[in-house]
Each structure stands twice: as C-alpha cells, then as structure tokens.
Simulated assay, not measured.
Amino acid sequence: MSIVRVATYNIHKGVQGLGPARRLEIHNLAHAVEQFDADIVCLQEVRSHNRKLEKHFTRWPDLDQANYLTPDGYEAVYRTNAVTRHGEHGNALLSRWPVLESKHSDVSDHRFEQRGLLHVQLLVESVAVHVVVVHLGLIHASRERQVQRLGRYIASELPPNAPLIVAGDFNDWGAQLLKPMADLDLRTFDGFRLPTYPSRLPLLHLDRIFVRGLKPVSAHVPHGRAWTRMSDHLPLIAELEL
C-alpha cells in the first residue's frame, strides 16, 4: 500500500487586499506549500508574471510564482490559462515524483473567462498516475460544459484504467457537479464537509479532489489566522491510497 498526499490551493495570484491595503503574500505562501509536505500540490491562480505589480512591490520574486513556490526536490509544471493586460496566470502542479509528461487543454466557455486544464503524468512508485488541475468558471452552465469537456479529454488522452486525480477550484457553490463527475467515474470524499471559501469564514466547499483508481483515505482543511491572510481560499489536503 502506498499513500499519496495531495494538496489543492487557489493562491489568489499571491496578493491579498485592495487599494492601499494590498499586500504581497507570495513569500508566506512559499512557507505554507512547504508545510503541506504533500507529494503533489495543485495550484490555481498562479501568476507567470505581472508587469504592473512587479513595479509596485519591492519584494516581488525574480522567479515566476510556480517555480518560486516549489520546495527543494520538487518539480514544477505551469500552464497559462489567462492573458491579461499586464501579465498571465494559470494552473500549476508541484511534484515530489518524476514528471513524465504535461499537456494543457483550453476549456474556456466564453470570452469573459479564460479557463484551462493542466494535465500532468507522474511516475509514482513505478506507477503512471495522471493528475488534472482545474479551475472552473463562475457560471453553473459553463461549469457543466467544462466537466463535459473534461470527460472528453480524459476519454481521448488517458488510458481507460489509469489512476487519475482531478483537483482544483470547481467554483461549485451548490455541489451540483458531484453527479456529473461521478458519471465520469470520478469520486470524492463521501460524507466529508470541507468548506474552503471564503477563508475568513469558510462556508462553501469549492475546492475538491476527485479520484479514479485510488482510494480516498483522509482529508482536512487547515485553519487559523495565517491561512485567512494568505488567500481568499483555504487549502484542501488529502491522503489517497494507490
């Protein structure tokens, strides 16, 4: 039996607050990611660069955020979802295990929201494990269509019996995507209520980890003042049996 520890976290582009109260949290986030002690870390709203904020904050890292957040001994994979006026942001995966391959699929549903799937194949204990990092749309109909596109992507790009983890920010306010995901043979933690949003008073279970070919063992959401400062989401950390 092998236990794989997986974390998913929407880092809100490494910046919190508005206007004069805006503050850089990417340095604290680097310590937080290290504390996860996770084999696989799935991140959303990760900045590749932002020319405006790079000038505003004197302590802006020289590296892109994915590589800056990568602990020693891990490998980072990043793909852009959205191109903005001043930069780019997207999904990232940090892995303690060797990366065999990575791909990206655009699942944008309309021109106002740029969304994508980051697909990474890892070698875990000599087993090829596929991980898809997602950040779905704000409109329910868009999320339903994006889950359908996820299903088509899995059917066309993955072996039918390969172990699979799908993790990220599903923006699923009413837990309406559980059945469509189950129809894809993707299951999550039954009976667990793990609210992750908003971080100051978590009420909604927006961040989820779904699996196929692995067994959910445990899951938890860390709480505390430090976590409420770093992002508008809390991280979700799970242990899976391979």
Rank of each mutant, 00 (worst) to 15 (best):
H49R: 06
F210W: 04
V46T: 11
Y74S: 04
N81A: 15
R200P: 01
M1W: 08
D169R: 05
R212N: 01
E34N: 04
E113P: 03
C42I: 15
Q146I: 09
V4F: 15
G19T: 07
R111T: 10
L158Y: 12
W60R: 05
T80A: 14
H104G: 14
V129W: 06
P20A: 08
R193E: 09
L234H: 14
R85T: 11
A182V: 00
A38S: 13
K52Q: 15
N171R: 03
V41A: 12
D207V: 07
F210T: 03
S126D: 15
K179W: 09
K179A: 09
A226V: 06
L158T: 10
I11Q: 00
Q121D: 15
W97K: 09
A175E: 15
P222C: 08
P20V: 02
L203S: 11
A175Q: 14
L158R: 10
A92K: 05
R96G: 10
T80S: 08
A30L: 08
R85Y: 01
N171A: 05
S48N: 14
T84Q: 07
R145C: 04
E125D: 13
L18M: 13
S231I: 01
A155N: 07
H233T: 03
T8R: 05
E34A: 06
S102F: 01
E144W: 00
K52D: 11
N10E: 05
D37K: 15
G168V: 10
H220I: 03
H223N: 08
L234E: 13
Q148E: 12
W227S: 07
L29T: 05
S142H: 13
H31S: 11
N91H: 00
M230N: 10
R5Q: 06
L240V: 03
V33I: 15
I139N: 07
D190K: 14
V166F: 12
D190I: 04
Q35P: 00
K55N: 11
V15D: 08
G137E: 02
F57M: 09
G17A: 02
A30F: 12
W97E: 13
Q65M: 10
L203R: 14
A7N: 00
P61I: 04
H56E: 14
T58W: 14
P71N: 00
Q65P: 01
E25A: 12
D207G: 08
H49T: 06
L242F: 14
A175I: 02
V15R: 09
R59I: 02
H233M: 01
P180C: 09
V221G: 05
A226E: 13
E157V: 06
N50H: 15
L236I: 00
E54S: 12
R152G: 05
R5A: 02
L234M: 13
A38W: 04
L29V: 11
V129T: 13
K103C: 13
A7Q: 00
Y9M: 02
E25G: 03
L242T: 10
A162R: 07
V129A: 05
T196H: 06
L201Q: 10
S108Y: 03
R229G: 02
L194C: 04
A226I: 09
Q44N: 10
A155I: 02
L136I: 09
R200Q: 14
R193T: 08
T70C: 15
L43F: 03
L136H: 03
